[in-house]
Design a protein around this nucleic acid. Structure first.
Length: 667
DNA sequence: GAGCACTGC
């Protein structure tokens, strides 16, 4: 404790010498554990230095001899890059030399790289080429407690690899709550392999590292709040009036709530008592541009308290200094997947105890803090311990395809940390079969299935891309694939005047629907707007997203060329009624036949079986146009409506032509 | 007739 206080009083916050981190005194013990255990679970509090120090300890202890590399995986790209930069600085090397990182589109490593930070998804991809990950002597899976689909799958793979490579060392960083689960996962049914290992090493053990956080007072409501948005607003104002200095972070569930709260604070701050400090409300959610997000990191003007209304983005992805008060509304929007209808939804759900603890922890980063939970202590006790892992509530088709490509044929018996519901697996297998990626024996087809697995787009788009050659529209589908991967981030300016948004979009509109409109946008961007930000700005386009589309397209093109598919980049016209447009629409149908719908006289859509009402999303051209049969990229439920987005007109006959079995089964 | 939490290859 004394060391803790000393550090706090004498060491400037921006620079903490590694020697003074609590982890330093555990160095020898940690190295011994890793040496003698195949699997080490590290329970480290925020600020324990685990992600930055452990790789350096390992490197110094000789784990990189004979050219082997230490891999550290992160769930997010920003974490992979920023942690790598910090370690490179501590080591005193240029980034990309001894310490490097690798994320999609950015491989900053070299032949001399010994410590490599990367996203967990990327390491799974490396396993496609090197199934035993032989380049690595140690793999550290950081933030495994977040339970993303890719970190779960990576752990399953590592467990399998370990049986063939007993010398591989696996380190898993976890929150307290789940450490035992991880250990049990690696220990169970390990008994039968003891004969393979000459020593009597145990499989794994858990080690805890203390962090550097300050005490946090947790306060609950005496009785439940009726309207948590209103309660968040009034609580923030109460804190501002009656609590000492320090910024406020308020967790809400989405954009709409956040904008409401920000506006309410601006309005009500006029009624604050005279002589009181000002209060500055700020929104924070992923949909904002980077520039807009940057405001929350700036120091507030003198005599002003910042109050940041944020989504879950501030729970793990983003750290803001100076937060002393946290207000937790008790809810989070979580994705769910309905395998029967193949529809994703996003619903406000009560947070887990682990998430509530994580949110509260955001208050104690710089000094002792307070967390106001806008629910009763009794309802806190009824919360689930942890959020349901993502693998149990997602469309699994992309991951099943990856597992198959890794040679794991019997995916139903793959060793999952938590097995997904059988229904999700069945649905994914059915889709992959109907796309032709799997054969009657559920084996990956060649070359279609193996190629689909290699392409970094979802299976329906992968199939579309691989059909494009026979329709003579490879270049156009490449663009459409890149544009749809942006996930609705193409347009900006939803707060702009609606009429202006409409007229601006009309400039790019194609009669056939959204996919061809996206193609027009991209072509205009690369011919006119790539160099000057003005073009994007004037046309309400997201410059950053379009630049990303250029990279994605280039990467997908390289894949196709490797498969021997020629890409003709000559700009041919594909205007209304011309044959190119029809070929593109036919090609899209070969991948998206399962996403077909027909417009009803009232302007809504019905799916093929007719049992589900679908609404064109207001961002779609088909929102206010007439159509008959269409295919769509995406379907999701929001509020009490089911929306479809990125919609293109097709002919009914094409469905039977390109997916005969699929539609026979259903008729 | 009116709007998606967060990641990732």
């Amino acid at each position: 404790m004394a060391e803790y206080d000393l550090g706090a009083s004498f060491i400037p916050a921006l620079y903490k010498p590694a020697d003074l981190l609590p982890i330093a005194k555990h160095r020898e013990a940690l190295l011994y554990l890793i040496e003698t255990n195949a699997v080490t679970i590290v329970v480290g509090q925020t600020g324990s230095g685990k992600s930055t120090q452990i790789p350096q300890f390992l490197e110094q202890a000789g784990w990189c001899e004979d050219g082997k590399i230490i891999a550290v995986t992160q769930p997010r790209r920003v974490a992979a890059t920023t942690v790598a930069l910090r370690v490179a600085e501590e080591v005193g090397c240029e980034i990309g030399k001894e310490v490097g990182y690798s994320i999609r589109f950015e491989d900053v490593t070299s032949a001399s790289t010994r410590i490599k930070f990367m996203t967990d998804g990327l390491l799974i991809r490396e396993a496609l080429v090197d199934p035993l990950l032989t380049r690595y002597s140690v793999v550290m899976v950081d933030e495994a407690h977040e339970r993303s689909v890719s970190s779960d799958i990576l752990l399953g793979l590592l467990k399998k690899i370990r049986k063939r490579r007993p010398e591989l060392r696996i380190i898993i960083s976890s929150a307290t709550l789940q450490a035992e689960d991880f250990l049990r996962f690696f220990t169970k049914d390990a008994a039968d392999e003891v004969s393979d290992t000459p020593t009597t090493d145990q499989i794994g053990s858990i080690v805890s590292l203390e962090g550097r956080t300050y005490p946090i007072d947790i306060l609950y409501l005496e009785s439940p709040a009726e309207d948590y948005v209103e309660k968040c607003i009034s609580t923030a104002l109460d804190i501002h009036v009656s609590e000492p200095e320090g910024d406020i972070l308020v967790f809400l569930t989405g954009r709409e709530e956040i904008e409401t709260a920000v506006q309410a604070i601006s309005e009500r701050s006029a009624q604050l008592p005279p002589h009181s400090k000002s209060i500055l409300p700020m929104p924070l959610y992923a949909g904002l541009t980077t520039e807009q997000q940057m405001y929350v990191f700036e120091e507030a003007p003198a005599n002003t308290r910042k109050v940041i209304f944020s989504t879950n983005i501030a729970e793990a992805s983003v750290t803001i200094n100076g937060i002393v008060y946290v207000v937790d509304c008790g809810f989070v929007k979580l994705r769910a997947y309905n395998p029967k209808m193949g529809i994703e939804s996003l619903t406000a759900t009560p947070v887990s105890k682990a998430a509530a603890a994580q949110r509260a922890g955001r208050a104690g980063r710089t000094k002792p803090g307070k967390c106001f939970r806008l629910y009763t202590e009794e309802s806190f006790r009824t919360l689930p311990d942890a959020t349901v892992p993502e693998i149990q509530r997602s469309n699994l088709a992309p991951f099943i395809l990856q597992l198959k490509a890794l040679g794991i044929d019997n995916v139903l018996r793959f060793d999952f940390l938590t097995p997904p519901p059988a229904e999700l697996m069945t649905k994914a297998l059915e889709l992959l079969y109907s796309l032709g990626a799997l054969d009657d024996y559920a084996k990956l087809t060649k070359p279609l299935g193996t190629r689909m697995a290699e392409l970094a787009v979802e299976p329906m788009m992968a199939k579309t891309l691989l059909s494009a050659q026979s329709f003579g529209c490879v270049s156009e589908i490449l663009t459409i694939a890149a544009m749809t991967s942006l996930g609705g981030n193409v347009w900006v300016g939803q707060e702009e005047e609606k009429r202006r948004v409409e007229s601006t979009r009309r400039k790019f509109a194609a009669e056939e629907g959204d996919h061809l409109t996206l193609l027009n946008v991209y072509q205009a961007f690369v011919t006119k707007g790539r160099k000057e930000g003005r073009f994007a700005h004037d046309n309400l386009l997201n410059f950053k997203a379009l630049t990303r589309a250029v990279s994605i397209r280039a990467q997908l093109k390289r894949y196709l060329e490797r498969f021997g598919i020629a890409v003709d980049e000559s700009l041919s016209s594909y205007g209304t009624g011309n044959n190119k447009a029809e070929q593109i629409r036919r090609c899209l149908t070969t991948g998206y036949f399962a996403h077909a719908a027909r417009m009803q006289p009232d302007g809504t859509f019905r799916n093929v079986s007719g049992d589900t009402v679908l609404h064109a999303h207001p961002s779609s051209l088909m929102f206010n146009r007439k159509a008959d049969w269409v295919i769509f990229h995406e379907v999701f439920e929001s509020g009490n409506k089911i929306y479809i987005r990125d919609i293109t007109k097709i002919e009914k006959g094409w469905l039977l032509q390109y997916a005969p079995q699929y539609y026979q089964i259903r008729s």
